[in-house]
Design a binder for these strands. Structure first.
Lengths: 216, 216
DNA sequence: ATCTAATGTTTACACTGAAAACATACTAGA
DNA sequence: TCTAGTATGTTTTCAGTGTAAACATTAGAT
């Protein structure tokens, strides 16, 4: 049905990535922990053991999806940072908001990335590396900020850890529905204010100069 | 075997709470998502459908466990706050560190509380209330701090949200193994420094007065 | 054209959450 | 004290899951 790629044209065409796409869709709908390989296989009209030719495990599949998620997250926060190449504080603000936007738009994917289904400690260096590349975007802004004298004289790594923890916590609480009472407009202000308080903790500038309403 | 309560002495004695205890133990060992009701039932030498007389659902059981977790968390952070009734900053620091200690000592329980297996949005008001009581400990310190002029003049709720997000993010990253490279001593300093940076964002005091090494 | 490896299918097994029908044992009311 | 009635526990059963093993097919190299 689908016009196949030039390279290889096996039974399905490219089941590996088709399977990943379909899995993502199901995850977005029903959540990570209710994902069933068989259901995805059914969606694709393929036998229930077909995926095992491409993924050793269910965990393997999830791990690849998480990896892909970290990549996307790194990409879109990086883009956000690029909006203000000259202004550290604005850049950080944008990175934060785009990070939160990603979490909000792909809550279950985000949960997969950090949910603990995959243990980041042992094994799977690939995954760990990609997740660190996501951290790298933040780290880069911190380094820049310290160099420019916009941020306090501390290890950029420490500052990055601080920002990451804060924004990660916000993201988790956000997708866990702890801010569910706020309506869209209020929520936006809340999130910005929270980032703002974090910025206040690491900047050398007076409060007034921290932007509260930069577009993402 | 166990000397029963005076009140009721049924077949098992008190299977409901025995089941919860056993479940907690298994969760601590193998993680939340691998918990099987049948396995717990086997541990207790009881039939596999026995739990269904006490919990409508697997979700119901998990929800009760989460609730219990929030209660414990609220208790131990509250105790920590009581260590410094006169000193806001020290108190907040202690609350933060004891929060992290709880997460570190009961990682899988903590993950259950926030992991998204239970959705906090819809239904289960009980759970939501208890989780808010946990939030209340932080909120109380913020209110006090603002009153005393130790914290900046902002909505205590906002400040509490800020602290909670930060410490929650740290807790999640901690139990997800993102700080796995640090050894115990380093880790302690890292965590304290991260809390310290947060405090710097919400306090009126100069940096030097923020305590870095209060005991928990 | 044939061989081989990559891919997909069928079948099978052990495990799970949960419903239904049944059995027991405690508690209360006569 | 005897007798319901109800709270508790068991047996049986079903549909759904992850995954291993044996088998079938197809693509690409020789």
């Amino acid at each position: 049905m689908v016009p196949m790629n030039s390279k290889t044209q096996y039974h399905h065409g490219d089941l590996a990535s088709a399977f990943m796409d379909a899995a993502i869709k199901r995850i977005a709908q029903e959540g990570v922990d209710k994902l069933s390989l068989r259901a995805v296989a059914r969606d694709l009209g393929v036998s229930q053991t077909a995926p095992y030719r491409h993924f050793t495990d269910k965990t393997h599949l999830l791990s690849l999806l998480a990896q892909q998620g970290f990549q996307e997250l790194a990409d879109c926060t990086h883009k956000a940072a690029m909006l203000h190449p000259q202004d550290t504080l604005k850049a950080i603000m944008c990175v934060g908001m785009s990070y939160l936007k990603f979490a909000q738009e792909h809550p279950e994917h985000y949960r997969l990335m950090f949910g603990g289904t995959l243990k980041h400690e042992c094994g799977n260096n690939e995954l760990k590396n990609v997740s660190l590349s996501s951290f790298g975007v933040i780290l880069q802004q911190m380094t820049l900020g310290v160099e420019r004298g916009d941020l306090i004289q501390q290890e950029p790594t420490l500052l990055a850890h601080s920002c990451w923890a804060k924004v990660h916590g916000m993201a988790m609480l956000l997708i866990d529905g702890f801010y569910a009472d706020y309506e869209a407009r209020e929520l936006d202000t809340l999130l910005r204010s929270l980032l703002w308080l974090s910025l206040r903790g690491i900047t050398t500038k007076p409060i007034s100069q921290i932007p509260l309403d930069e577009p993402v």
